[in-house]
């Protein structure tokens, strides 16, 4: 029994069907626990006041925004090398989820930035990189939507995903460089991990777990949907052929 057996659409459907409700439930429980814990039962941080509570949304969504892209990259590579349809469809399914995660990270970051930095937006390297990542997601999803033939769409988006990944990393470094050029050393650090105490850390971990589980559930749900869409297409094509013959 190898891992690749799950690349069979039928096997994938049968395996994930009973798992999916539990995954959604676990995601819900972890998210609610993490967020309620963070929102009601953590103290306020001395400098940031109650805005520190935004961390429970911002950090997990930002992590998932990047991880979703990495997952898409891996799935695209698997598709190109081994031609497993489930892989390509999982990459497609992850796209919009990753985009929403990026949007949440950007929105919560802006809302946190307004009282803390006195501005909704600064061209800080991290913020800028995320905006670029958001544009990559837009392009990737748009390319999927624009192409009719499913295999061509899967191939082209996979190529775009790989090239895009290289350029995303490149942009990250370019943006770092560019910002240093703008104001030497005095960049706003968003790295709160250094001084995050245990009181904040544990609910944050729970919250991250919730986001990961939710991401997995959504990707599986959406992959199942895409597999069904494929199947409908195939059945309809067969029906048309049958009519043509008769």
């Amino acid at each position: 029994m190898s891992f690749w057996e799950y690349a069979n659409p039928k096997k994938f459907m049968v395996t994930t069907a009973p798992v999916l409700p539990w995954l959604f439930a676990a995601a819900g429980v972890a998210l609610v626990t993490g967020l309620v814990w963070g929102f009601f039962f953590t103290p306020e941080e001395a400098r940031q006041g109650s805005t520190v509570k935004i961390i429970y949304l911002h950090v997990p969504s930002a992590m998932m925004a990047i991880n979703a892209w990495v997952m898409m990259l891996v799935a695209s590579l698997i598709w190109l090398v081994r031609r497993h349809h489930v892989s390509a469809l999982a990459a497609r399914a992850a796209g919009p989820v990753g985009m929403v995660m990026t949007l949440i990270a950007l929105a919560t970051g802006a809302i946190w930035g307004q009282p803390m930095w006195g501005t909704w937006w600064v061209w800080d390297p991290r913020l800028t990189s995320f905006l670029i990542l958001f544009l990559f997601y837009l392009g990737y999803i748009a390319l999927w939507e624009a192409i009719d033939d499913p295999d061509t769409a899967a191939d082209l988006t996979a190529v775009l995903c790989i090239v895009g990944s290289v350029f995303a990393v490149l942009s990250r470094y370019a943006v770092n460089f560019w910002n240093q050029g703008l104001h030497q050393g005095a960049s706003l650090s968003m790295d709160k991990q250094e001084n995050v105490a245990n009181v904040f850390y544990i609910p944050l971990l729970v919250s991250i777990a919730g986001f990961v589980l939710l991401f997995l559930s959504l990707v599986i749900l959406r992959t199942r949907t895409e597999i069904r869409v494929r199947r409908i297409r195939a059945l309809e094509a067969r029906a048309q052929q049958g009519e043509g013959r008769a």
């Binding site: 392009g139 748009a142 895009g164 350029f167 370019a174 943006v175």
Partner: peptide
């Protein structure tokens, strides 16, 4: 990427412009 798509020009801008970011940053710098 977009050669097979009818009216793909706009889509192509969306795909290409984010890829231009590093070149633009270093060039303008």
């Amino acid at each position: 990427l977009t050669v097979g798509i009818r009216r793909g020009g706009l889509l192509m801008s969306l795909l290409v412009l984010p890829l231009y970011v590093p070149v633009l940053i270093f060039g303008a710098e």
